[in-house]
Design a protein around this nucleic acid. Structure first.
Lengths: 171, 171
DNA sequence: CAAACTTTTCAAAAAAAAATGAAATAAGCA
DNA sequence: TGCTTATTTCATTTTTTTTTGAAAAGTTTG
């Protein structure tokens, strides 16, 4: 293992920053992957989260060693979740990106964008089950009704609880 | 499109059950995929959810048209989440599976099994950041401290809120 | 205990998801 | 406007995940 520290054994400021950056990227890559986001999205957010200055895309590309295609796609995703925003930097025509660090808002956007649309289509699917049901008139009909009712309660509860969740997140 | 209904235009009980089964499988395949579970797991649960009788694995295999490997794997996953349980059927040596339909409990198990372990490793990663930090002693140290503090609040809130979530699920 | 049946495991194949990079497009500047 | 730089798009490649199927392991019962 190469010797990276100064002779006195203390790590330089750059080394500290680099160590934190690595942990941050690791942290958010895993976080995002729980939420079903690709690695690159986690990497970009992790890098920006501990950057005091807004970074242009080419900096993101070179520091993370990812392709410009991935960076562009990842930033698009992060923008749509409002997890990053662009900040104007005088005398530079590139977009510069900054991490949005208010997790409550991020979370709320994620639920609205990524989860709620599924709840809608779930409701449609339950409606189809109910369309099919009424013909059924033997004893098993009761069983089906109960199971469908459970699904309805689940989606209703989900639809109410999930958007309210962000509010519960007292950070 | 082939004519599947009887001449009177009403659908048979089997057709109704099949229609509901299809919607159920569709419903849970999507549900599970939000939670990062493979298609086969959703299919199996969707089939069992609307089955009044416990089904043995070979029934699951033949009705879903999946391999026995997938079925075995999927059932293992579902068992570990306590989303299915086996039920004894007299005079049959095969295991018979039944869906657990109490979503509150399912949800709670999912969080405990799939989410909480990540929260633990997140805490370890934050600890590493704090180890790296103290050397840093210029003005930017403050920035890092604030960001790390935010992460700590996030993981703390997550660790408390997520396990409590199932309790909020009033179905 | 051995034959018949059931289930699990796991290497290989197939499918799905993500990353790449180059061409196309867009946007700022002289 | 034309030149330069920045960004997006998307067909292709790479990587990861899931499924398959057959062999191994495990069970039950005659």
């Amino acid at each position: 293992m190469p010797h990276l520290s100064p002779i006195n054994g203390k790590q330089s400021i750059q080394e500290t920053e680099q160590a934190i950056e690595i942990e941050s990227i690791d942290f958010f890559v895993r976080m995002m992957s729980i939420l079903g986001m690709p690695r690159s999205v986690g990497e970009i957010y992790g890098l920006l989260y501990f950057s005091a200055v807004p970074l242009p895309m080419d900096q993101i590309v070179s520091r993370l060693g990812i392709s410009i295609g991935s960076a562009s796609q990842g930033l698009k995703t992060l923008r749509s979740l409002k997890a990053v925003r662009t900040s104007y930097v005088a005398g530079d025509r590139r977009d510069h990106y900054l991490a949005e660090t208010e997790f409550r808002r991020l979370f709320s956007n994620f639920i609205k964008e990524e989860i709620m649309p599924h709840m809608e289509s779930a409701k449609e699917r339950i409606a189809k089950m109910e369309e099919a049901l009424p013909v059924q008139d033997e004893k098993s009909a009761e069983f089906y009704k109960i199971r469908i009712e459970k699904l309805k309660r689940l989606t209703r509860a989900g639809g109410r609880l999930l958007p309210a969740l962000a509010g519960l997140l007292k950070l």
